[in-house]
Amino acid sequence: MSPTRLLLFGLMAIVLYSSVSLAQDNSQLSLDYYKKSCPDAEKIVREEMECAVHEDPRNAAGILRLHFHDCFVQGCDGSVLLDDTVTLKGEKKASESLNSLIGFELVDRIKNQLESRCPGTVSCADLLAIAARDAVVLVGGPYWDVPVGRKDSKKASLELANADIPTSDEGLVALITKFSEKGLSVTDMVALAGAHTIGMARCTNFKARIYSGDFQQTSHYNPASALYLTKLVSTCPLSGGDDNITPMDYITPTLFDNAFYESLIRGDGLLNSDQEMYSTFIGFESTDLVKKYAIDPIAFFKQFSDSMVKLGNITNPEGGEVRTSCRFVNA
């Protein structure tokens, strides 16, 4: 699938906007954007993330997922953080976000620290991008430099959130299409899915897989996977329990490593969308990538870092502002 549709964003950048909502493309991002205006920005984010992950390791996956959801809707513009108001319908109630996204209070805490040190300077979109990197590092994953300078959108899109964010039950073709529409390749897709090595999933997102027989078929009824399935059934009953959660990587759930890919090779990936990358007969490229990352953690870390930068470089061509509160547009 060609990623050329992403170039449409660049064409939109020629449209004129008012002085309070400046058009933006990813060429405006840089590593030293806050060098003079807020030199301690990354340090402030890192210190807050260190405390948060120490308090609860789930905060790492929560922030990482917030950044992913943000970038998949309108580009990385902080729109996922907006609360509903009389005049704005946010994205928090989208089907893949409702009862699933966490970390909003942590974002508030980081933003308050940034505002106290550098008022009106660091965008919420940049905050998320930096915090996502730190989240990965704090649980054993790779480091990458984060280009910054994103603007916060003055609007959100519940419709796009429902349409664009990949779902847990989608097939490989649909997944490839959604990533391609964001300018992300199959390689990016498989690498970014590796974030599930520290994620949690709700029962409602894997119930069909464990009760339809799909899990047993992909795992070939091997004894180890059968024991895992028994545990999943106890966590996720056929009736009810939709909000019960379990790790997507049950071997090392709080460590960022390549064990997630090993589970796909065993056939006991928790989500259908993940297992599809390895088990579907049309997934030649994705299958090879899963095998590669399962045996080569260095290759996985390198590609994950590169793909996270690529994901983070999807900017909203409409530009925006620097919000003083990540939950609301500026007055």
Rank of each mutant, 00 (worst) to 15 (best):
D249I: 05
S185G: 06
Q74L: 15
K35W: 00
D188M: 01
D288A: 13
S19E: 13
A331S: 14
L29M: 10
F301H: 12
P317L: 03
S2G: 11
S168K: 11
Y250Q: 02
F284K: 08
L160S: 12
A331L: 14
V190R: 01
S180G: 15
F206Q: 05
M308I: 01
Q275V: 01
V146P: 04
N26I: 00
L29C: 07
A23C: 04
T167Y: 08
V322F: 09
S234T: 11
L184T: 05
L255K: 13
E181G: 12
R117E: 13
S279I: 03
D188T: 01
K151V: 09
S212P: 11
L6Q: 09
S279D: 10
L238K: 15
L8T: 11
S234F: 12
C76F: 02
T85L: 09
R109I: 05
G183D: 09
A94W: 08
C118H: 10
K182V: 03
V53T: 03
E50Q: 15
S234I: 06
T121V: 15
S219H: 10
V190K: 01
R133H: 12
M277Y: 00
D242A: 08
T204W: 04
V173T: 13
Y33Q: 08
R109F: 07
R117P: 00
F104Q: 08
R327A: 11
L64V: 11
L172K: 08
G62I: 02
E276I: 00
T280E: 07
S2W: 10
L175N: 09
L172H: 09
I63R: 01
I110S: 01
K155Y: 12
L64R: 02
G149V: 03
N316F: 13
S307K: 03
G183F: 08
S212I: 08
N26T: 06
A135S: 15
D56P: 12
A331D: 14
R327M: 10
L106Q: 07
R202P: 05
D145F: 07
L88G: 01
T252K: 10
A224E: 15
A191T: 05
V80P: 00
N330G: 12
Y211G: 08
R58K: 15
D77C: 15
S234R: 13
